[in-house]
Nucleic acid binder design. Sequence first.
DNA 1: TCAATATATGAATAACTATTCATATATTAT
DNA 2: ATAATATATGAATAGTTATTCATATATTGA
Lengths: 115, 115
Amino acid sequence: MDCNHEEEHRFAAERAKKNMPSEEEVGEVCAELKAISEPSRLKILLALRQGELCVNHIIEAVGGTQSGVSHQLRILRDNRIIKARRDGQNIVYSLADAHVTALLELACAHLNCEF
Amino acid sequence: MDCNHEEEHRFAAERAKKNMPSEEEVGEVCAELKAISEPSRLKILLALRQGELCVNHIIEAVGGTQSGVSHQLRILRDNRIIKARRDGQNIVYSLADAHVTALLELACAHLNCEF
DNA sequence: TCAATATATGAATAACTATTCATATATTAT
DNA sequence: ATAATATATGAATAGTTATTCATATATTGA
């Protein structure tokens, strides 16, 4: 279990241990990332980069069933990735904030999906 | 199934559909994000922000079993989130590139884990 | 070559999650 | 009030994934 590396490694290990965020904090960041990390949900988010959309427009853009999309929307909403407002019969969804937008752009940056 | 919203919504829906990346592209981005989005793996990545670490140092920093950590390391390596080099008996891991570092920083940005 | 150490891996299980189906709620128009 | 439309939700299932245990591989030193 011992490591004969240079001193710098041991220091890095100690710093890492000392600075490791709590389980709770790690869990929060993971929950946010995980909400983004599923194809069906990522597609919804990519669609919303064009601007706010009501549910049937989202379904048009990403495909899938009404129920399925609605379930994914709930997960995204619960994780504050998107926000909803009612407009008559429709519920209109949009990206929650600039932080989410930035995450999306960075995630796509190394692909050619620069739309 | 029809939506009586303003014109701008319909345009957004059409743009979204037209610009939606392929299933394959979406899958690639998701795979990368998903690799980051598990507590055990995120902790490994946070530890590696301090600099390269060999496996037993990683175990020290994040906790868990040798086997468990090794399995997570493989997933991170397969997804090119981290890279490995051998140094004698040890394998030394580090973050793969600046893109990963940027993703991590952004993911943590809205928490207080600014270490 | 043998023992010791460090790391990896296959298989099994248990926990988690996406999807589907059926149904419920809420809004608008008649 | 009723019908029609839009959206949400609970339950069930099927697929996925993390974790554990046992074992394998690779490197070093004796």
